[in-house]
């Protein structure tokens, strides 16, 4: 009995949600959600110790530094931050990561990637946005490509994807494009998520089961 009352007093971060509820809504089991909570705690106490993931903490985990901006990390952070309040809460973390589960549906991955690349949220991926992303990638990877090579890559990709030739990629064209070019969604599946309980074993569940 003493155990049960002490487990109830355990402090939870704001935004904590019941693992059973999250498991029911995502690709994860309850055990896996508990393991993700271990990872979440680690990330959310790395700089600002309030139990919420701030952008700097997200960057620190991705790049080992919290300084500097990265177009793609910013985009991912903003999409994870479903409530758009500047932090990633635990439920948002689990729901968003669920899309990256190798077993999650291709359709969810396709939609998420579209939102990611629709930089200005117009409902289309525009040529200028694609160019901006290619330039950002070259910049972060210290790769050098001539302006004409960048144009060639952007043009050839666009010509392939923009089948109705209106100068922008709509969700339907995107769906067709990724079917023909599945490697474009490579970053949307994280093998780590399949054995998350080994990477982040959780002992929390055992005390809660007694309740």
């Amino acid at each position: 009995m003493g155990c049960a009352s002490s487990s109830k007093r355990r402090r939870r971060a704001p935004g904590y949600e019941d693992p059973a509820v999250l498991a029911a809504q995502t690709s994860f089991t309850v055990n896996e959600v508990e393991a993700l909570y271990e990872l979440y705690k680690k990330l959310s106490f790395s700089i600002i110790k309030d139990g919420l993931i701030h952008k700097e903490e997200f960057q620190l985990a991705l790049f080992r530094t919290s300084k500097g901006a990265n177009l793609f990390a910013d985009r991912v952070f903003d999409l994870f931050d479903l409530k758009r309040n500047g932090v990633i809460e635990f439920g948002e973390f689990v729901r968003s990561l669920s899309i990256f589960h190798p077993k999650a549906s291709e359709s969810d991955k396709t939609k998420f990637a579209f939102k990611l690349y629709d930089l200005r949220g117009t409902g289309y991926i525009e040529k200028e946005e694609l160019r901006e992303m290619v330039l950002a990638l070259l910049d972060e990877s210290d790769l050098c490509l001539s302006e004409s090579a960048v144009e060639e890559i952007v043009d050839s990709t666009f010509n392939q994807a923009d089948t109705n030739g209106d100068g922008r990629i709509d969700p339907r064209e995107w769906e067709e494009f990724v079917k023909k070019n599945p490697a474009s969604l490579r970053n949307m599946s994280l093998p780590y998520l399949q054995d998350i309980t080994t990477a982040f074993p959780s002992f929390v569940m055992h005390s809660e089961v007694e309740d």
Binding site: A61, L62, R75, V76, M133, N181, A183, S184, R186, N187
Partner: peptide, 25 residues
Amino acid sequence: RPALMNAFELISTSQGLNLGTLFEK
């Protein structure tokens, strides 16, 4: 001449999109 990698495939190699890093200790 080898076929060009499509731009989205290239972008998918960005470290900012490699969330696997979150799981590395």
